[in-house]
Computed example of a mutant assay.
Amino acid sequence: MQMLRTSHNRNDDRAGSFFLATLILWFVSVWFEILFNKRRELLWIIAGTWFFQISNWVIRFLVSRDPLFVNTSVSLFHSTVTSVSVLFILVYQCLKNGSDGLFEHSQLVGGTWEWAYPTLCFSCGYFAYDQLDMLLYRLYSGLIPSILMHHLILLICFTLALYRNVTVNYLILTLICELHSIFLHVRKVRRMAGVRDAKSKIVKLEWVLNWVTFIVARCVSHILITIKLIRDAPKFEKGVQLPLALFGMTGMNLLNAGLGIDLFKAFKREINTLKGSYNHGE
């Protein structure tokens, strides 16, 4: 048992060292672009990182010092802010220019909707903050932690798009999935706060919203984006744009499948708990 625990710790240490090294390289890259290539617009990434780090400190000071609770609360805050921002961008764009041509290839790849660039930068800053927070407090496990790999893939895709100012609108559309993340984090915070009554109407409503947003905002939206990329493949210029976009969306769809399995298992556990309480009452 002790040997097994030691093996797990070694795996965690190796994973932590690798992902910390990649995060440091990422920060160096961003600062290089800002300072030497005069990309001042990328300061929104740094602003996002500090904004969510300060949110972390406020929650830690005022609410709880539990690292997992603090991390999840900040993630809930990010999901809410990002969801509202993405919906605002889409509605504003429709009201200003109409919906015609909104999802044309040229618009999604070469165009940048108003407020889309700083929003993507801000969200990119969050993923950097979250990666560092998870590494500092060891909120991961395994040789290749899926959450750290997920953040690394997003950081690579987001920053390359921001550096070259391409596919920004595509990536804004992928962030619609943050609508579902809201209810994922709400569930986690609710359980950590000790609210676990499966018979509660609030909990039942939470599950309904969890499944609806998982299907619509995460699965369907990401599948449609992937189909759009494949259909418009001949319209892409030669280079890394299409392979990188397809790689990113393939990764997201696989993670969505894994998330769906985990969500179903959690849902089944709560249903079984509810049935058990009814049988006990009888």
Rank of each mutant, 00 (worst) to 15 (best):
A15L: 06
I225C: 04
P145K: 05
S141H: 15
F32S: 05
L152S: 08
S146A: 13
K38I: 02
S106N: 15
R164F: 11
R187Q: 09
Y170H: 11
T250A: 14
F18S: 12
D13N: 15
R191N: 08
E33A: 11
M192C: 04
V186H: 00
H8Q: 12
V216N: 04
K275A: 04
L274Q: 06
G110C: 06
I225N: 02
G16S: 13
Q2C: 03
V28Y: 11
L255N: 13
R187Y: 03
I156A: 14
R190I: 01
V28W: 10
K235P: 00
V91M: 08
N56W: 10
K275H: 09
I215K: 05
S106Y: 10
K96W: 10
I45R: 01
H150D: 03
A116N: 05
G260D: 05
H105T: 06
D133E: 03
L95Y: 08
T226W: 08
G281N: 11
V216Y: 10
L108Y: 08
D100S: 15
L132M: 14
I225L: 14
R138G: 07
K188R: 15
F103W: 09
R39A: 12
Q2E: 13
R187M: 02
G48Y: 11
Y278N: 12
L23N: 10
I156C: 13
T119L: 04
V84P: 01
F247N: 06
T226R: 02
I227D: 09
T250F: 15
L132W: 15
S83R: 00
F18H: 14
L120P: 04
H185K: 03
G260K: 09
C124A: 12
L139W: 06
C94I: 15
Y140I: 00
M249I: 12
D197E: 12
L242Y: 13
V203Y: 14
C121F: 06
G101C: 10
P145N: 06
R14V: 13
N253Q: 06
I153T: 08
L68R: 15
S221A: 11
E41S: 15
S55G: 12
F122Q: 01
I46A: 13
V220E: 02
R138Q: 13
W57M: 04
R269C: 03
Y92L: 01
N97D: 09
L135P: 03
V240T: 14
R60G: 07
H280G: 07
A15Y: 09
